[in-house]
Simulated scan of single mutants.
Amino acid sequence: MRRRRARRERADAEVVAHLRNHERDGDEAELAAARAAEARRDRIAPLPPARPTRMGDRMHALEHRVGAYYAVPFTAVWPRLWLAATEADRGEIRTAAGAFEASTRLCGWGLLYAALACATGWWPALVAGAVVVLAAWWLGRERLFALADLADAVVDLRLRSVARAVGIAVPPGPVAPATWRELDLVLRRRR
């Protein structure tokens, strides 16, 4: 985690440097470079790393963004969002969750190969197990990131429906933070 934190800090410093150059010179190339640096930084971790793995950091970033932007805890609103989501939304989430689960099963098979190698001393099983575990880890990370992005999109697309369903008037267009705080109060009352 320490190395990831240091890499993210360097990437964040690069973003800041490009933005300062853009503000000073008005150079559009610096703005484009800042956006590219932001993308690289966010691939390392959307927020400063606080979890042992990148997957944990990505899920933490989802919870943090929803809490910071909408002032409602993701864990409190997700069951209601699931009910407010369309069948197409749910299908996309199920597909992404199924792909992540397949990665975890693949990792389990890799660990079984490694256990076979330890039990029998047959080294090819250890090599196969290591390759399978590494592939499952890489696939799992990418699939979890996709799942988090979909969950994030469902929040953005369906939170108004949840607010309306619990009796909060949500005007079209930008929503005042007070509306989301009111939704948070309603959700907390029902816990």
Rank of each mutant, 00 (worst) to 15 (best):
P46F: 07
P46H: 08
L47C: 02
L47F: 06
L47M: 09
P48K: 06
P48D: 05
P49M: 03
P49A: 01
P49C: 02
A50L: 05
A50R: 14
A50G: 12
R51W: 00
P52A: 11
P52R: 11
T53E: 04
M55D: 12
M55Q: 14
M55I: 13
M55W: 05
M55A: 14
M55E: 13
G56N: 04
G56F: 02
D57F: 00
R58V: 14
R58G: 02
M59L: 15
M59I: 15
H60F: 12
L62D: 06
L62R: 11
L62C: 09
E63G: 10
E63L: 05
H64S: 09
R65D: 10
V66S: 06
G67F: 08
G67H: 05
A68E: 12
Y69E: 00
Y69K: 00
Y70F: 07
A71I: 01
A71C: 01
A71S: 02
V72H: 02
V72N: 01
P73G: 04
P73E: 12
F74Y: 13
F74R: 01
T75Q: 02
A76T: 08
V77D: 04
P79S: 13
P79M: 14
P79C: 14
R80N: 08
W82Y: 14
W82F: 12
W82L: 15
L83H: 12
L83E: 15
A84P: 09
A84W: 10
A85P: 03
T86S: 15
E87V: 03
A88S: 09
A88C: 03
R90Q: 15
R90S: 10
R90C: 10
R90V: 12
G91A: 14
E92C: 06
E92K: 14
R94T: 12
T95E: 15
T95Y: 13
A96K: 10
A96T: 03
A96N: 03
A97H: 11
G98C: 06
G98W: 08
G98R: 06
G98N: 09
A99H: 13
A99S: 11
F100S: 07
F100V: 10
F100Y: 15
E101T: 11
E101D: 13
S103D: 06
S103A: 15
S103C: 10
T104F: 00
T104H: 02
R105A: 12
R105P: 01
R105N: 07
